[in-house]
């Protein structure tokens, strides 16, 4: 009988040990993975689905980056070889989820190839080709939403009154994604400001403007859409817009009543709580 008890004890101990060690490893790994995916400031290839799903979907095969590098329009005319590509594959230490594609506009922006070589090769669904098709079901890079260019007025020299339209000229959607707004320069009394204004409905986030910007650290730069944009929410309705007004067509009035506080206002002032 004794040896049976011993066996059972050993079995229980080793089972508990295994479960414990596995749980330890799992907890460590879970922490590391959570940290590894928390890099919101990353620009993905065109047609990338939203960042959280993208991190899940991408199988890290690198086919998009290879297509980007080996495209015909990326050949260096003097050497005849392929230049370095826009799309990079994250390695450890890049502070981006390892193996996923991204680009740094300041180094190499997206050149907006009309045939979008990086998207159709994606096998996993992380790059959704439907999002870059126009109404005629043709590939249209202008549908891409990789990010949104943002202008820092303090460091943009156009806002100082100096004439600079580097970003405006660099933009592949000239006069659509960036327009110049004229304003009177009161300081000199005879000059105009030519202020770059980014339009989020047209901007694709390619980053050509960021690369073209003349300041030491670019005054115009691309941020991921989630970060660059705010959100109004459902509460506000444009009453002057018939379509928007339609949203509240069937709205009903909900009345709620709150009773008046029975306590005196002075009680509140004389309470012992410190504010």
């Amino acid at each position: 009988m004794n040896w049976q008890n011993d066996d059972r004890r050993k079995f229980i101990i080793s089972s508990v040990q295994s479960v414990g060690l596995v749980a330890t490893g799992g907890a460590l790994l879970g922490g590391y993975v959570t940290k590894a995916k928390s890099s919101p400031l990353v620009l993905r290839p065109p047609a990338a689905i939203n960042e959280e799903d993208f991190l899940t979907a991408c199988v890290k095969c690198g086919l998009c980056a290879e297509a980007c590098k080996n495209r015909d329009s990326n050949i260096d005319r003097s050497s005849g070889k392929h230049k370095e590509a826009t799309l990079k594959i994250a390695t450890a230490g890049d502070e981006r989820l390892i193996g996923t594609p991204y680009f740094l506009p300041l180094e190499i922006p997206c050149f907006m190839c009309p045939d979008i070589p990086c998207v159709p090769v994606c096998p996993s669904g992380a790059l959704d080709i439907k999002s870059v098709l126009n109404k005629k079901k043709e590939l249209d890079i202008n549908q891409a939403k990789m990010g949104l260019a943002v202008v820092d007025r303090e460091s943009c020299i156009a806002y100082w009154g100096i004439q600079c339209d580097a970003c405006y000229r660099a933009c592949p959607l000239l006069d659509k994604a960036i327009t110049l707004e004229y304003q009177k320069n009161e300081r000199t009394g005879k000059h105009a400001y030519l202020l770059p204004i980014v339009h989020s409905d047209a901007c694709t986030g390619c980053g050509l403007c960021e690369q073209a910007c003349v300041t030491e650290k670019p005054a115009i730069f691309v941020l991921p859409l989630d970060i660059a944009k705010g959100r109004v929410g459902d509460h506000y309705v444009k009453g002057w817009d018939a379509k928007d007004q339609n949203r509240v067509k069937d709205a009903q009035i909900l009345e709620s009543k709150t009773g008046i506080n029975k306590e005196s206002a002075l009680d509140y002032l004389n309470s012992k709580d410190e504010f």
């Binding site: 879970g30 993975v33 995916k37 959280e52 989820l97 390892i98």
Partner: peptide
Amino acid sequence: ALTGVAAFEVF
């Protein structure tokens, strides 16, 4: 399943 990211591929 818990973190929403293919966990082995991270390292």
